[in-house]
Design a protein around this nucleic acid. Structure first.
Lengths: 159, 159
DNA sequence: GCAACTCTTGTTATGTTATAACATCCGAGT
DNA sequence: ACTCGGATGTTATAACATAACAAGAGTTGC
């Protein structure tokens, strides 16, 4: 049953959450790292909202549920999830979002609607690859974020 | 006389500062906007350092020179310079850097050395162009930042 | 001249994002 | 029981950023 809007399109949100969580469980088991209650709940919160959330928004949810009330609690969980690749940090929003392709190595890229705030994760092939090679720079990580208007908001903006 | 290291290469720094400042003067005149003393000095500070600087680093310089001591002074000047395209904001560093190609419309991209902090501005052709088109997203601005190791720091890191 | 306006700067106060440092807890292994 | 590593709890503060209002300087129109 499709029911919510992830990026710009509709999808079966409940199934997507279940799937992402079980992938996370499996990956953590395989890596011998611990998806503790707080960490798992933070991932779940991000999956549920299916939007970019600030660390303090996540923290507010944790606090409401008695899982922690101080900033380091949220930041530590988010740091763990980012390290494991289950969550991405959106630099231009100072926010976090659940990954759409957990367990698979990828360079994430994002399209961020400046009107409604929706964020869609995209794939991008080695941005800067050639330029970097030319200048002798070794790329380890990339941040690719586009701001603009999602299909839904274009009419309202007169496009 | 080459004397400093801008991105990863040597160049005539004094000439580069002069040139950028006179371009900024000309562009501001053409656009009928005001390159006031504070704004001009902030640009100059960023050009001199030729590195990414935090707003509060810039502010400290302004303060030392009696040009302003409160955060809004620095942020306002930086905002102006970014709007006019003389300065870029580096999202992943929460920092600012003087543009290497002022007065020319371009989508900036950056290579950021995680070891020495050097930042080189690169050109990139419409990252995400195709992906965005496919999903109906209209891109207005892009953030492209690569973290890695500059040529100088690779040996020290064992590469 | 001077009133009205715009642009810029000065200042106060506060909001938002993030981390250092240290204390405590708990389970695994011995 | 001991201790060691990983995780969490807590205090305090650092770092980044902006809202809101006051005040000056220059210019335009009268």
């Amino acid at each position: 049953m499709p029911q919510d809007t992830p990026g710009f399109t509709t999808h079966d949100h409940a199934a997507c959450i279940r799937s992402a969580l079980s992938t996370a469980d499996a990956v953590c088991a395989a890596r011998s790292v611990n998806l503790t209650p707080v960490r798992r709940r933070v991932l779940e919160i991000l999956l549920e909202s299916h939007a970019a959330m600030g660390a303090y928004d996540v923290l507010a949810r944790l606090d409401a549920e008695g899982l922690g009330s101080k900033p380091p609690v949220a930041y530590r969980a988010l740091t763990f999830l980012v390290e494991q690749g289950f969550v991405h940090r959106i630099e231009s929003l100072n926010a976090f979002i659940a990954c759409m392709h957990p367990g698979v190595a990828h360079d994430p890229a994002f399209m961020i609607c400046r009107s409604c705030g929706a964020v869609e994760e995209a794939q991008v092939e080695a941005a800067l690859g050639e330029t970097a090679t030319q200048s002798g720079f070794v790329v380890e990580q990339t941040v690719v974020e586009a701001e603009g208007l999602c299909p839904h908001c274009q009419p309202e903006a007169g496009l």
